[in-house]
Structures are given as structure tokens and as C-alpha cells.
Nucleic acid binder design. Structure first.
Lengths: 225, 225
DNA sequence: CCAAAAGTGTTCCGTCTACACCCATGG
DNA sequence: CCATGGGTGTAGACGGAACACTTTTGG
């Protein structure tokens, strides 16, 4: 290696994935027991080192795919975390990514293989290193973004009821929303389409199923809830 | 080094500083000619490598201090940039930080020593590597933040007129603001204090000077413009 | 027949926006 | 005395928040 920057010291760089799901009306986080030293056995986000031949996004996607078997998930960078002692073993700089997935898409078997599980975000254990801080930042980001970006659909099946959608907003924002006002606003959004399908799993009467029309949104990507 | 993570490859990590100033009613960016290979002579943000004994924030502060001689500047992380080929020399991951400074605080001599200068953000040259992209992200971030955080004062002297303040908002948001509506809103904010000093440099009549009371803001850090 | 979730409008209030003229002063 | 930037108020539009009852149906 006849590099330009040889005199400077290199560091390890990892990516950590903050994976949110939505289940039983709660926002949940996917964590597992750390399988390597240092910190073996502690609750931790799922992560991995960045390889020489991949970008940060690629690394995050690889880690996500490895864990979930899913591709093209919604993903956003939360930030870089670089305190010297953040990792108890070595100096490691980590770039955190936040991903949203529909829990139904996640195969239970894979989950057990990797030893990870869903925990409610408002009842989270202590995590390895600065992972709690990363999660906190990710949630702050989510709360800001959900009002101006159609994120919520990534947490739901492709067909969903308005009640479900409202619960997603309530879970992320951490506050109750008036049903009538909520539905009024949703009706004005033309890329949230009502189907004539009815879901009877949650009530006797049944509720109409809706769908997020991504194409239509992309033609005019304006969203304001 | 008997490390835990020995088998993984390390990478270079740098910080790049996106330094904004406000002058002549325009938002400006501090850039210079790159003094090292590769890319020597190209316009570039000011940056440096992260050392083994400093956090990312420390590194950014060191670079900022080295360049400006100023400490405790307003600074926010913009994000980590890690495309494989982003640096034409080697694989370098860079963490960008956005800083706001009052151009009057910046010694002209230091500026010349480092060969940097202020350029208007809406008339920026092509920059080294992905620096234009970083700047674009930083501006997007600024625009969002300026509505909910009292950032603008970092770009102004400690005493400023309401016209100056309005021009900061206009420069960052890129749109004109109605003078009367603007001043009405400012009056409701109690941590923006009117002094009985008058600035006569910009008009014959003179304009009252105002001051940002940081203490008062921190007691009740709510800001909404 | 009743429990449980789905669905539906109106009123009020506060906030944002548009808009034009007088003031003070230095040169 | 006039050119220049500083400073002020009001009316109408709009959007957000509060609020309660009817419908459907499986068990």
C-alpha cells in the first residue's frame, strides 16, 4: 500500500442497525445478545464491521439482509458515533442506521437463529456500549420525520386499516390522536387509497383496508400530516 | 496490539468542516484550495484526520480551532460519508460537521494564512470529492433547524438589529419574509432582548440593537419561528 | 341483545398572511 | 428637503383542536 495518507492512523468502523417494528400497537426494537467479546451476552443492536470494498450504506444493507433476509428496507443514517471509549474493547467508530420493517415480513426462524427479539421501545433494557443513546437519537429522528415523510407504511403490511395506521402514529409520537381529525387528514391524501377489501380480524363489523400508492406519492412527493 | 477485532480491516476516518458565515446579507461558506495530494489545488472544505486519542467531536473542534482560532463554536454533525471511491486517493470515510460563525470574529490574517475564503453558498464552485453534497445536506439541515432552534444568533455579532436578523433568516431559507410579521413574532420571544443601544452604521435614523439572552433561553428552551 | 370496534361533521379559536404608511436623520 | 432604511397595526383566511353519537355484527 503506497498510500497518500500513510502516516495517519486508521480505525475500525462498524455499522449498527436500529431496527424498528410495529406490533400489538407498540413500537418495538430488534435486539439480541451480543455473541462476541467484549461485552458477550449483553443486549445489543445488530451490527458489523465495514469492509474495504463496501460503502457505509452497503455495509448496513448487508448486515440488515444477513439478519432479516429482507432487501430494500427503508433505511436512514442516524449518525456517526466516535467517542474514544465507546467500545470497551478497541477504538471503534460506529455509524448507526435506522431501519423500519413490517414484523410480519420477518421470519420467526431467522429471528431465533440469530438470537434476536422484539422489545417495546418504552421498556428497553440497558444495551451494550452507547447503543441506548443511538436508539434515542433514532427515535427523535423518527418523530421529526414521520410528520413530513410517509414512513409509517414501512411498519405496516401493504394493506392496513386506518386504525392500525393511527396506532403507528400514536406509538411513534407517544401521544393519542383524535380519530376524527386523523381520518379527516388521511382522506385528503390521495396516495393513501381505500380498497374495497375488509379486514375482520380486529372487529366484528370489519374495517376497510387501505394501501399506500408509492408511485402516486413519488409523482408528487408532498406529505404533511 | 492484541485486539478483539484484528481480522477486520481498518479505514481512515476524517472530519470535514462546513463553516457558514453571514456577510453582506448572504450566507457564505468557508473554503480553500486543497494543499495536499490527491486533488491538490481543488476547492475544498477544511478537514483533517481523526486521531487515535480524540473523539469525532474533538477532531472537528481541533480542525475548527486550527483554522479559526475560535472555540466553542456552534457545531452539529451532518453525517458520515462513506462511498468507496469518494476520495480519489484512498478509501476514507469522512464525518462532516456544520459550524456557524460570526464572520467578524474571524481574523482576516488567519484566513489568509490558511488560504481560505468566504464564498456565497448560492455561487459555489465545484468542490473536492463529495464536498458539494455534504454542503447541500448541511444547508437542508440548517433550513429545518432554524425554525425550531435559535441558530441564527451564531451568525451575528452579539448585538444586532432586527433587520440583520431577518436577513439571516432570508439568506438561509432562501425566501423573503414580511417585515411586520417577522417583527411581530420576534417581539413575542422574550429571550431576544431589546437594548437601548442604537446602530447607525446602516441607516441615518439608526436601528435598535438586540441581544440573544442565552441564559433565559436555556431556562425554557422553546423556540418556534 | 350487547359488547366492541368502525365510521362520521361541525363549531370555535388561534395563528398566519397580506398589506401601506409615517418616522427620523444625515448629507 | 429628500433619500434611505426603521418602525408600526388590522382584517380576513385558513388550519388545527375539541367534541359524541350511530353503525355493524359475531358470539
Amino acid at each position: 500500500m503506497t498510500g497518500y495518507y500513510g502516516e495517519h492512523s486508521k480505525v475500525w468502523v462498524s455499522v449498527d442497525c436500529i431496527i424498528f417494528g410495529f406490533d400489538h400497537d407498540k413500537l418495538k426494537l430488534l435486539i439480541g445478545r451480543r455473541q462476541m467479546d467484549p461485552g458477550r451476552g449483553e443486549w445489543s443492536l445488530y451490527g458489523g464491521f465495514v469492509r474495504a470494498d463496501e460503502s457505509l450504506e452497503d455495509a448496513a444493507n448487508r448486515v440488515l439482509y444477513d439478519l432479516t433476509g429482507l432487501r430494500r428496507l427503508y433505511m436512514k443514517q442516524v449518525g456517526a458515533f466516535g467517542d474514544i471509549d465507546r467500545d470497551p474493547g478497541e477504538r471503534v467508530i460506529s455509524v448507526a442506521y435506522c431501519a423500519l420493517i413490517n414484523v410480519e415480513d420477518y421470519d420467526e426462524k431467522l429471528m431465533q437463529e440469530h438470537g434476536v427479539q422484539w422489545v417495546p421501545v418504552d421498556d428497553m433494557p440497558q444495551l451494550y456500549s452507547d447503543h441506548n443513546y443511538m436508539v434515542k437519537k433514532a427515535i427523535t429522528l423518527l418523530r421529526r420525520r414521520i410528520k413530513s415523510e410517509p414512513l409509517s407504511f414501512n411498519l405496516l403490511p401493504s394493506l392496513f386499516t386506518l386504525t392500525q395506521l393511527q396506532h403507528v402514529y400514536e406509538a411513534i409520537l407517544g401521544e393519542e390522536i383524535d380519530k376524527r381529525n386523523f381520518r379527516k387528514r388521511i382522506k385528503q391524501i390521495d396516495f393513501i387509497e381505500k380498497t374495497d377489501l375488509i379486514d375482520k380480524t380486529t372487529s366484528k363489523r370489519g374495517a376497510y383496508l387501505y394501501r399506500f400508492n408509492k408511485r402516486m406519492y413519488q409523482e408528487e412527493p408532498i406529505f404533511k400530516l
